[in-house]
C-alpha cells in the first residue's frame, strides 16, 4: 500500500499547471481529489513521475448558473454538489448522483471533474452528464476548447483530453420548463461502484415527452447513451407502456460483462429495471416542476 516514489507540485496558476504537464510529457498526472488516482498509485497500478495538484489553481471550484447553463468547476467536491440548494432545486439527477457516489468520507475529497476525467465506466457522473447533455471545457497549451460529453468520453479510462490538458468545467444546460431528472443506482453495498446505474432526464409537453436524455453506468466499456431509447421516447405519452418499451431498448443497447457484480444477463435486466425506475421518477419530478 505504499506507492513508488513520485514528485509533487501544487502550482498556483493554470498556466503553471499546464506547463508542468507539458514539460513532463506523459509522465505527469493531474491530481484532483485523489480518490481514484491515489488508490492506483498505492496498488502500484500507476506510477506517474509527477503529480500536478490542482487544489491551489484558482477559479476551479465555482458552482453556479451562468448564461443558461450550470457551470460546475472541475474541482467542485461531490459533497458541495450534495449540499447545494441550487442543485437540489433544479438538478435533481445531479443531487441523486452525488449522494450515491462512494461514501461521505470519499465525497468530501472526490471532485466532479475527476469523476468524469477518470472515465471509469463504473463512475456515476459520466452517465448523468450524458443524460443532461453536458459539455466539457478544457484548457491546454493551445488554449481553451469545448467538447461535448459524448466526444469527451472515449473509452475505459480514456478521454478526449490531451496529456497536457486540464478539464476546467462541466456545463449542464439549464433544464427547460416541465423537466425532471433522476439517477438510480444499484450497488452491492454503500460505497460500491454501480452494478448498474441509470440517469434520465425528460421534458414534458403536457403528458408528451418533448425531450429525453439517458445515460448508463457500468453497462458497457464506457458510460453509454442508449440512443434508440431516447429517440423512441420523444413524442410519446410518458406512460408505463412507453417507459417499459424505452427500458427494453436501453437494455438491448447495454453491453455489460459478467463479473462479481453479477452475470451479464442480470445486469442487462437491471438496465431494464433501473431505466424504468429512473424514467418514472424523472417523469414524476417533471410533472411537479
Amino acid at each position: 500500500m505504499i506507492p513508488s516514489a513520485f514528485d509533487y507540485a501544487a502550482p498556483q496558476s493554470l498556466s503553471e499547471a499546464i506547463s508542468l504537464l507539458q514539460g513532463n510529457a506523459g509522465q505527469a498526472k493531474v491530481l484532483a481529489g485523489g480518490q481514484s488516482l491515489i488508490p492506483l498509485l498505492k496498488f502500484r497500478l500507476a506510477g506517474p513521475e509527477l503529480l500536478v495538484d490542482l487544489r491551489k489553481v484558482p477559479a476551479l471550484d465555482h458552482l453556479e448558473e451562468r448564461d443558461g447553463h450550470l457551470a460546475i468547476g472541475a474541482m467542485v467536491r461531490e459533497s458541495a454538489l450534495e449540499h447545494s440548494a441550487l442543485i437540489a432545486s433544479r438538478y435533481p439527477a445531479l443531487l441523486d448522483t452525488s449522494s450515491v457516489v462512494a461514501d461521505p468520507l470519499v465525497r468530501n475529497y472526490a471532485t466532479v471533474g475527476g469523476n468524469v476525467a477518470h472515465a471509469d465506466p463504473a463512475n456515476d457522473h459520466p452517465a448523468t452528464m450524458l443524460a443532461l447533455r453536458a459539455t466539457a471545457i478544457a484548457n491546454g497549451p493551445n488554449g481553451q476548447r469545448t467538447i461535448s460529453i459524448d466526444d469527451f468520453l472515449v473509452d475505459t479510462f480514456e478521454t478526449a483530453l490531451a496529456p497536457d490538458e486540464v478539464l476546467m468545467e462541466l456545463r449542464v444546460p439549464r433544464p427547460a420548463a416541465h423537466s425532471g431528472s433522476a439517477y438510480v443506482k444499484l450497488e452491492r453495498k454503500v460505497g460500491d461502484y454501480a452494478i448498474i446505474g441509470v440517469a434520465a432526464q425528460v421534458t414534458l409537453d403536457g403528458e408528451v415527452c418533448a425531450q429525453a436524455g439517458l445515460g448508463l453506468t457500468n453497462a458497457a466499456p464506457r458510460a453509454l447513451r442508449p440512443r434508440e431509447a431516447e429517440t423512441f421516447l420523444v413524442g410519446k405519452r410518458l406512460d408505463e407502456e412507453s417507459i417499459r418499451h424505452a427500458a427494453e431498448l436501453a437494455a438491448s443497447a447495454a453491453d455489460p460483462v459478467s463479473d462479481l457484480r453479477g452475470p451479464a444477463d442480470y445486469k442487462r435486466a437491471m438496465v431494464r429495471t433501473l431505466t424504468t425506475r429512473a424514467l418514472r421518477l424523472a417523469a414524476q419530478r417533471a410533472r411537479q416542476a
Binding site: D103, R188, K189, V190, G191, D192, Y193, L260
Partner: peptide
Amino acid sequence: MDYLLPTAME
C-alpha cells in the same frame, strides 16, 4: 472493493 464488509449503512 470486492470483499463486501458491511458498514453502518448496510
